[in-house]
Design a protein around this nucleic acid. Sequence first.
DNA 1: CCGGTGACTCTAT
DNA 2: TATAGAGCCACCG
Length: 127
Amino acid sequence: MKRQQKAKESLQKILPSGNKENDFFQQVWELVRQIPKGRVTSYGAIAAALGLKSGARMVGWAMNSSHGQKPVVPAHRVVNRNGQLSGKNHFATPTLMQELLEKEGIRIQDDTIINFSQHFWDPQQES
DNA sequence: CCGGTGACTCTAT
DNA sequence: TATAGAGCCACCG
């Protein structure tokens, strides 16, 4: 639990100069930002796109740090492999994620995206 | 250096 | 079909 707070604080360090801008987090944020409106992707897909075979958790960690990022990170467009809004609890409000997705034309039922595969956006496909 | 944790995913029972 | 356990990488103290 405290890890998240610490992680957020650590984020403060990577923002200033002299740090590794190529940080894993930055990569994730950048990729997430490239997600087209009305589309969604999974942590595993992002992790794979970054070269992490099973680093889905790291992606989630990056999302945690994405809170308050200057370039808005549409973390709401990132869901688990099941299309469930697993991270909705980490947003400003648990319902914010769903609201944002619905605003983009995505139907959500039971915290799960309907026709997830249809809205799914492959990070590698953007290239 | 080592242990613990995490917005995940897969495999096994 | 559902539940349980292990694997995975990165970061912190």
